[in-house]
Amino acid sequence: MFLINCPFCGEREQSEFKAGGEAHIVRPKQPTELSDDEWAEYLFMRKNIKGVQFERWNHVHGCRKWFNMVRDTSNDQIKAVYKMGEKPPVK
Protein backbone atom coordinates (compact mmCIF):
# COMPACT_ATOMS: atom_id res chain seq x y z
CA MET A 1 0.00 0.00 0.00
CA PHE A 2 1.34 3.39 -0.96
CA LEU A 3 0.33 6.94 -1.87
CA ILE A 4 0.06 8.02 -5.49
CA ASN A 5 0.38 11.62 -6.63
CA CYS A 6 -2.34 11.78 -9.30
CA PRO A 7 -1.30 14.42 -11.88
CA PHE A 8 -4.87 15.79 -11.79
CA CYS A 9 -5.98 15.37 -8.15
CA GLY A 10 -2.82 15.27 -6.05
CA GLU A 11 -1.81 12.69 -3.47
CA ARG A 12 -4.32 9.91 -2.81
CA GLU A 13 -4.28 6.36 -1.43
CA GLN A 14 -3.34 3.62 -3.86
CA SER A 15 -6.67 1.85 -3.21
CA GLU A 16 -8.39 4.66 -5.21
CA PHE A 17 -6.44 3.60 -8.30
CA LYS A 18 -6.49 0.70 -10.74
CA ALA A 19 -3.24 -0.56 -12.22
CA GLY A 20 -3.32 -0.84 -16.00
CA GLY A 21 -0.12 -2.78 -16.59
CA GLU A 22 2.97 -2.02 -18.63
CA ALA A 23 2.99 1.37 -20.37
CA HIS A 24 4.14 2.44 -23.84
CA ILE A 25 2.97 -0.71 -25.62
CA VAL A 26 1.96 0.74 -28.96
CA ARG A 27 -1.19 -0.57 -30.62
CA PRO A 28 -0.31 -2.04 -34.04
CA LYS A 29 -0.94 0.42 -36.85
CA GLN A 30 -1.78 -2.31 -39.38
CA PRO A 31 -3.53 -5.04 -37.36
CA THR A 32 -4.44 -7.06 -40.45
CA GLU A 33 -0.78 -7.47 -41.38
CA LEU A 34 0.36 -8.82 -38.01
CA SER A 35 1.63 -12.38 -37.70
CA ASP A 36 0.45 -14.62 -34.85
CA ASP A 37 3.81 -14.11 -33.13
CA GLU A 38 3.45 -10.34 -33.30
CA TRP A 39 -0.09 -10.53 -31.91
CA ALA A 40 1.13 -12.69 -29.03
CA GLU A 41 3.90 -10.18 -28.33
CA TYR A 42 1.43 -7.27 -28.32
CA LEU A 43 -1.36 -8.96 -26.37
CA PHE A 44 0.38 -11.21 -23.87
CA MET A 45 4.15 -10.90 -23.52
CA ARG A 46 5.24 -8.54 -20.74
CA LYS A 47 8.59 -7.37 -19.39
CA ASN A 48 7.35 -7.87 -15.80
CA ILE A 49 10.46 -6.10 -14.53
CA LYS A 50 11.85 -6.46 -11.03
CA GLY A 51 13.12 -2.91 -10.65
CA VAL A 52 12.14 0.32 -12.39
CA GLN A 53 9.10 -0.20 -14.59
CA PHE A 54 6.88 2.12 -16.68
CA GLU A 55 3.17 1.59 -16.02
CA ARG A 56 -0.30 2.92 -16.76
CA TRP A 57 -2.66 3.69 -13.89
CA ASN A 58 -6.24 4.92 -13.73
CA HIS A 59 -7.63 7.05 -10.89
CA VAL A 60 -10.76 4.95 -11.00
CA HIS A 61 -12.29 6.20 -7.73
CA GLY A 62 -11.33 9.82 -8.43
CA CYS A 63 -10.99 11.77 -11.66
CA ARG A 64 -11.10 8.50 -13.68
CA LYS A 65 -8.24 9.71 -15.86
CA TRP A 66 -5.41 7.54 -17.12
CA PHE A 67 -1.79 8.52 -16.53
CA ASN A 68 1.68 6.99 -16.48
CA MET A 69 3.91 6.13 -13.58
CA VAL A 70 7.54 5.07 -13.10
CA ARG A 71 7.79 2.72 -10.15
CA ASP A 72 10.40 0.42 -8.64
CA THR A 73 8.57 -2.90 -8.37
CA SER A 74 11.11 -4.32 -5.94
CA ASN A 75 10.10 -1.86 -3.18
CA ASP A 76 6.99 -0.07 -4.57
CA GLN A 77 8.72 3.34 -4.56
CA ILE A 78 7.30 5.74 -7.13
CA LYS A 79 9.97 7.58 -9.14
CA ALA A 80 7.73 9.79 -11.29
CA VAL A 81 4.16 10.40 -12.43
CA TYR A 82 3.34 11.95 -15.82
CA LYS A 83 0.34 12.48 -18.08
CA MET A 84 -0.58 10.38 -21.08
CA GLY A 85 1.22 11.51 -24.19
CA GLU A 86 4.08 13.09 -22.24
CA LYS A 87 7.61 11.79 -22.43
CA PRO A 88 8.81 9.90 -19.31
CA PRO A 89 10.73 12.32 -17.06
CA VAL A 90 13.28 9.65 -16.07
CA LYS A 91 15.00 6.96 -18.08
Partner: peptide
Amino acid sequence: DYVSYSQKGSHD
Protein backbone atom coordinates in the same frame (compact mmCIF):
# COMPACT_ATOMS: atom_id res chain seq x y z
CA ASP B 1 -3.64 -5.61 -9.25
CA TYR B 2 -0.18 -4.07 -9.75
CA VAL B 3 3.14 -5.73 -10.47
CA SER B 4 5.30 -5.96 -7.36
CA TYR B 5 8.14 -8.10 -6.08
CA SER B 6 8.03 -6.57 -2.62
CA GLN B 7 6.27 -9.50 -0.84
CA LYS B 8 3.95 -6.90 0.71
CA GLY B 9 0.33 -6.49 -0.22
CA SER B 10 -2.19 -3.73 0.44
CA HIS B 11 -4.24 -3.48 3.62
CA ASP B 12 -7.49 -2.89 1.76
